[in-house]
């Protein structure tokens, strides 16, 4: 009961912020929230002790779905597009999960990376899809409503906020469930979990599908916001960036990825503005600082503040 109320409150706060935020911040918020979904998926995996260096695969699948589906079928409805992108990414994760759920640690990370790079290679060789230049994404509609070009971002922001709250809410629920609670147990001792009567492989497989679907949703929303898709979304640097933000965020809460993602986008945006020639050093240096001084990520600050309040 309290959980549902919390979600409604979170949605209200997020959507309400859309009326206060300046335009540039609104766009940054859309991208941050959408990328936060990808990071949320990584957090689910990370709690199990797994890191995927190939989330770009699912992120890109979601994005290319939004780019291609309107061209093939004529569908421009954002709800359908994002749902399809999420479903396709989830299905691919499900198929690959049969193989990947057997692996752990570096082998898991590298295999994930390998699959992402296969898709990257295919996209680069596909001249019909614009190769590395990519192609445009058409303007979307919302359940039959086509916003004017000036208010398109406002509407997309509200849509994104709702999607994020719903998905984060579902993931939060899942993490509280018995199989969800199993995540940390698997990380600590797989053998014991098996002796308790749970299938570790199935649990890992499930989490992998969740992470893939979330990445697909994130990619679909980012493609809508940017209005362009290209193979760079699948590249390992994009995947690495998500891992970067995961470390920055910390795995303490389902809210953490969105805070981390927003901080990251703001950091990069202002670093670029004030240091166009060495902004990468500022971004990289901040990660080093977080690893050294906040091993639990930015969320550990919130946790600390909460603990001191009690």
């Amino acid at each position: 009961m309290g959980y549902g109320l919390g979600l409604v409150a979170a949605a209200a706060v997020l959507v309400g912020a859309g009326w206060v935020l300046p335009e540039w911040a609104l766009f940054l918020a859309i991208v941050s929230l959408a990328k936060g979904l990808v990071v949320l998926g990584l957090v689910v995996l990370w709690r199990t002790g797994l890191v995927s260096f190939g989330q770009g695969l699912y992120y890109g699948l979601g994005a290319y779905t939004v780019g291609l589906l309107p061209q093939i079928t004529g569908i421009t409805d954002a709800v359908l597009l994002v749902a399809t992108g999420t479903a396709i990414a989830g299905l691919v994760a499900f198929a690959l999960g049969f193989l990947l759920s057997r692996y752990r640690e570096i082998f898991f990370a590298m295999l994930c990376l390998a699959f992402a790079m296969i898709l990257y290679g295919i996209l680069v060789k596909t001249e019909a899809l614009g190769s590395t230049d990519g192609f445009h994404v058409v303007a979307v509609t919302y359940l039959g409503y086509a916003p004017a070009i000036e208010s398109a971002n406002q509407v997309l922001y509200v849509f994104t906020a709702i999607v994020v709250v719903v998905l984060a809410g579902l993931v939060g629920r899942y993490l509280q469930s018995v199989t969800g609670q199993m995540t940390t147990a698997i990380r600590d001792n797989e053998l014991r979990v098996e002796y308790l009567g749970f299938s570790v492989r199935r649990a890992v497989h499930t989490k992998f599908v969740i992470a893939g679907a979330l990445a697909g949703a994130g990619g679909a929303i980012v493609a809508t916001a940017i209005g362009h898709v290209d193979p760079e979304m699948v590249w390992w640097i994009t995947s690495g960036e998500f891992v970067f933000v995961t470390i920055l965020s910390g795995s303490g809460s389902v809210i953490a990825p969105f805070i981390g993602s927003t901080v990251f986008e703001l950091l990069r945006s202002f670093a670029l503005e004030y240091a166009p020639n060495f902004w990468q050093i500022i971004v990289g240096g901040s990660l080093l600082a977080v690893i050294m001084f906040l091993p639990g990520g930015l969320w550990s600050l919130v946790a600390k503040w909460r603990a001191s309040g009690r």
Binding site: F27, V31, G134, I226, H228, I237, S269, E273
Partner: peptide
């Protein structure tokens, strides 16, 4: 700077204007 991928390039363009 144009480096960092299309998503960043578009975000920076919007930031610069807005």
């Amino acid at each position: 700077d144009e480096s960092g991928g299309t998503a960043k390039v578009v975000t920076d363009y919007r930031n610069a204007v807005q």
